[in-house]
């Protein structure tokens, strides 16, 4: 409750929450408002927004209804953001917690592996994964999660390193607590706030990565993703710029929403901010 009040004191957090709720509402209402398949041919291609009252945002160069595509695309983007960040944060927390808690050679080994991943630019790694395993939505989502786990991992490790010698941990250890309950029950809850904040950043990055893949024509062409529409619109950019601009704005809003929510969470969860 206290955290929620703190969150609501942050203007960035409020704006972010409003935008995010709008995106979620679009995703939820997609089927009700646009029952047609978003990939279906809705009319003559390249109708400008407003030219046809039946198609308020016009059609893209493949004759698809941009408005319907936008709403259905919100689902895909939220799904990718959510699943990919669960994968990334899940792996990151697991590896980071073990490395930070045990230290020594375990830490050395895990950190060298982490560094190996970090030295490869994550988009290049993503391209390799997609080239090898194909471009289905599930593959892409997991691949995006796999390339993004290193940053949360380092974060968790750093938290664990600073927490594991604190008095409350030593006390728990002195009382004979085993490693597992100690990690899960005592250390992890105290390490989580920055990770939660970072998870919102991971979600934003995941959405951008999928869009970048789609822009290059490497995402799943059978789904209504915003990036797919931007990629398709690239060939008519000089004349019908709205085909790329409208889904681009949607991505901007969604990524901004996640970033602002992250900022709001940071303000709410950061103990230093609470003191002020």
């Amino acid at each position: 409750m206290k955290a929620l009040r703190a969150y609501l004191r942050s203007p960035a957090g409020i704006i972010g929450a409003v935008l995010l709720i709008a995106v979620i509402a679009a995703a939820l209402s997609a089927d009700a408002l646009f029952p047609r398949d978003p990939l279906a041919l809705a009319g003559r291609p390249l109708q400008w927004p407003g030219a046809n009252p039946r198609l308020p945002l016009g059609t893209d160069n493949l004759g698809r209804d941009i408005a319907g595509f936008l709403f259905h695309g919100a689902r895909v983007s939220l799904l990718i953001g959510l699943v990919a960040s669960v994968v990334a944060v899940g792996i990151g927390v697991l590896v980071g917690a073990v490395a930070g808690f045990y230290g020594g050679w375990v830490d050395d080994l895990l950190m060298r592996i982490t560094e190996a991943f970090q030295t490869v630019p994550n988009f290049i790694l993503l391209l390799v994964l997609v080239a090898v395993f194909g471009s289905e939505l599930s593959v892409i989502t997991i691949a995006i999660g796999l390339v993004g786990w290193t940053a949360p991992c380092r974060l968790v490790r750093a938290e664990f390193l600073s927490l594991r010698n604190r008095e409350f941990v030593l006390a728990a250890r002195g009382l004979g607590m085993r490693d597992m309950p100690l990690i899960l029950g005592e250390v992890l809850p105290n390490a989580l706030p920055p990770v939660i904040v970072y998870a919102s950043v991971v979600m934003a990055i995941a959405i951008l990565l999928e869009s970048a893949l789609a822009f290059l024509g490497l995402s799943d062409p059978n789904i209504a993703s915003w990036g797919n529409m931007i990629g398709a619109g690239r060939s008519v950019l000089r004349t019908e710029w709205y085909v790329s601009a409208i889904p681009g704005a949607a991505i901007l809003v969604t990524v901004l929403a996640f970033s602002l929510v992250g900022q709001g969470l940071n303000d709410a969860l950061n103990p230093r901010m609470q003191v002020l």
């Binding site: 398949d37 990939l39 279906a40 041919l41 160069n61 493949l62 004759g63 024509g217 062409p221």
Partner: peptide, 12 residues
């Protein structure tokens, strides 16, 4: 590429 999408849309 466009023809592929058009076939997909038409056969649906």
């Amino acid at each position: 590429l466009n023809f592929a999408t058009f076939i997909q849309q038409s056969l649906r």
